[in-house]
């Protein structure tokens, strides 16, 4: 039981760490800004899901790939693929429907937190 939990979380740590490591290599080598990094990883998630590789990776890596923004991209693509089985309209809209929770959370929490706090000048 303990061993199972350890290996489960160890896998999450390793895979999540590796994904971020790739991001850091990109930052160091190409001086990409954070928005570009996020877009790149999101699109990587969309592509991985579209070609059908994501589920196998997720099986092994668990939150190690769903918590990085790759997971957000895969959910978008997953929704779109599901919608495509129903019709063209659903093919176009089910992607956003699948991430509605995350987007709503980001917008609402973003709004509330920004109402409550202001930016502070940083000390060196």
């Amino acid at each position: 039981m303990v061993w199972e939990i350890l290996s489960r979380y160890g896998r999450v740590f390793l895979c999540g760490g590796l994904v971020c490591l790739v991001g850091q290599i990109l930052i160091n080598k190409t001086k990409m800004t954070s928005a570009r990094i996020l877009v790149t990883f999101l699109l990587a998630g969309v592509v991985l899901q579209a070609v059908g590789l994501f589920d196998a990776i997720k099986e092994f890596a668990l939150a190690g790939v769903t918590i990085p923004i790759i997971g957000f991209g895969s959910t978008l693509a997953e929704g779109a693929i599901e919608g495509a089985k129903i019709g063209l309209f659903e093919a176009c809209t089910y992607g956003l429907r699948a991430v509605a929770g995350g987007l709503t959370a980001a917008i609402v929490f973003g709004f509330v937190i920004a109402l409550l706090f202001r930016s502070r000048s940083k000390t060196a």
Binding site: V39, L43, G79, A80, C92, A106, F111, A114, L115
Partner: peptide, 28 residues
């Protein structure tokens, strides 16, 4: 606050939604 909220994240949402629509249409 509201207008500038997506100054950094805007590209992420736009590219995500557009690519998911593209995937959906291809699959359809």
């Amino acid at each position: 606050l509201m207008a500038r909220m997506f100054g950094v994240a805007g590209p992420i949402i736009v590219s995500g939604v557009c690519s998911s629509v593209a995937v959906g249409i291809i699959y359809y």
